[in-house]
Nucleic acid binder design. Structure first.
Lengths: 327, 327
DNA sequence: CGCACCTACTTACACGTGACAGTAGACGAC
DNA sequence: GTCGTCTACTGTCACGTGTAAGTAGGTGCG
């Protein structure tokens, strides 16, 4: 009870077990190429358990050069249950690979990311948007082994390579399947959502192209009834159905139509709880975000093993339309 | 270009500047009690900048015994914009104190938290719920300097000490002010939300007690119209107004009432975007979550300085009622 | 016996940093 | 000129760990 302040190290375990620190380390790490009798192994494990030994990560990282932290840099856009499930599942998969998943909400305005790499020196970093050249340079500097997306390159972004594209595509295909020949796509007026928004709208555009239809009318609104109503009014003689960036935008559009006494089919994205309570109940695209998280995690692990991460586009079975009354 | 693999250390900076590593360290850390001429200081800074030197956190932590990472352990309940703003602001305040805020979404089911402490060995940890005895023990083991909430103690939880209580209180007070004498409180059927739910309901209970009224009727529902409708039906001759745990629950209740052709005043919490598009538009309690995040951050910093964190109850100006049509 | 070879360990170094203790040289005081 | 003091540095140890290299003792083989 005297030395309450000292941390328990492998030296303590070695002393307790009557062995050298090296032996302790071999046992605790299952170091291959060592022949250790079961009796000794047990002696070490017993001692470690008795003292409540926990290896000290900073020392371990310093020595071995690799940390077991994986970092998700989340954008500061509003995060719903979709993202939560994604992160949760990714954490699970990474955990099985011995990695601990940490998230950092990055509020674009400052350059705190540099501080972040050096404070954590994570083994892997995943970002929802492509990193800037400066960010990539900073990460190279501190030698982070795996970074996704790996490059700054105009054509390469989460929107086009991951699943965002597929979402917009599915929305459009659903409405086209209902017989609509001209669609509108509504984006939210939030710069933070620009990347995703563009990705989804592009997906819808592709679907229209494939069906031999004109491009959708893309329109940006703020999240209020007036803005939505004026968008709705502008489609009087063009679009006959509406894809919304997400359920919140869709709800705004529904409110706008209600204000005007109009009614067009609307489809959202996310299936937030509020969607089913809307009037009319909102048809929307639900994502199997857990599976997506799993994909990302596996891609990170691959990247750590110097394999090609091949974070391809989304298999269609991970997203589906939840059909309700609005479309 | 030859040694692309080696990390740049303070040795490199020292060599570049033609000084010893100790001097470099003194300059870069502004170590007090050292007299260093401006010319030398500039020489060091120039060299560090030229080489792009970044101190290696694990080594720094190992040596100094303190890390500059603060950890938020977030519950895995669905996180809306409220929590995002809270975390964002807390990160800002902590950043000014030289701390980097990291969040970890903890999905209660596994015991991955232990791995987390040792992987990060953060300087401070904040949890939305009280930690279990085992968790606290684990943190003591790795010597984490500041932990909030600090103790496992039945009466002490975030619900009663922070702001949750105040939210329920304000909801009830608002409805009482409208002349209602008997209230209902509706909680969601999600075990993860139990702590918060109880806190809020208790706040409402207190408000009723203070007004000399009967306790509110507390009822738990699942997030669907039928469940909400049966709750509404059960209040036929008791409650005349409804407090909902949050906006999602409130929207469910509105849907339930719509199905029954009934109409009671309803007030939610959070002011999610969907609230203003509901029919009728939802009256709700909005929280200044940024200010709350600031409070938490400051309490953590105080705890790090061995001062009393005194994470008191919420000043009333951080929450307010957004009045719309539903109540 | 002499040599090789295995088992079961131990010794010793390195990772990059912070900071204590020391020291060469300059300068002033007596 | 000697002592003390101050400036501007440098040498060196410690933090806790992983692991390469070494070694004492036993066993097998000729």
């Amino acid at each position: 009870m005297a030395d309450k302040k000292r941390r328990i190290t492998s030296v303590d375990v070695a002393r307790e077990a009557g062995l050298s620190r090296a032996t302790v380390s071999f046992v605790l790490n299952n170091t291959p190429g060592q022949s250790i009798p079961e009796a000794t192994r047990q002696r070490v494990l017993r001692a470690a358990d008795k003292l409540g030994y926990t290896p000290y990560a900073p020392a371990r990282t310093l020595r071995s050069g690799r940390s077991d932290v994986a970092l998700f840099v989340l954008p500061d856009w509003p995060q719903g249950p979709t993202m939560a499930a994604l992160v949760d599942r990714a954490a699970q998969v990474l955990g099985q690979a011995g990695l601990t998943l940490i998230t950092h909400v990055h509020a674009g305005h400052d350059d705190g990311l540099a501080q972040l790499w050096s404070a954590l020196s994570p083994a892997a970093v995943f970002g929802m948007r492509p990193f800037t050249a400066a960010e990539l340079e900073g990460m190279r500097r501190v030698r982070i082994p795996a970074v996704l997306p790996p490059v700054e390159q105009p054509g390469y972004d989460v929107g086009s390579t991951l699943w965002i594209n597929g979402v917009g595509r599915l929305q459009a295909q659903y409405l086209i399947g209902k017989g609509h020949r001209r669609l509108a796509y509504v984006l939210p007026d939030d710069p933070r959502l620009e990347v995703l928004g563009r990705g989804r709208a592009e997906g819808a555009m592709q679907a229209c192209g494939e069906a031999g239809l004109q491009e959708p009318v893309v329109r940006t609104i703020t999240l209020d009834t007036e803005s939505a109503a004026s968008a709705v009014a502008s489609w009087q003689n063009t679009a006959t159905a509406v894809c919304a960036y997400n359920d919140e935008v869709a709800l705004a559009v529904l409110a706008g139509m209600r204000a005007l006494g109009v009614s067009l089919p609307v489809i959202g994205v996310d299936d937030i709880p509020a969607a089913r309570f809307a009037v009319p109940a909102l048809t929307t695209v639900a994502q199997d975000s857990g599976a997506i998280g799993e994909r990302i995690a596996k891609a990170l692990i691959k990247a750590l093993n110097n394999e090609d991460p091949e974070l391809g586009s989304l298999p269609s079975d991970l997203i589906r339309v939840v059909e309700r009354d609005s479309a």
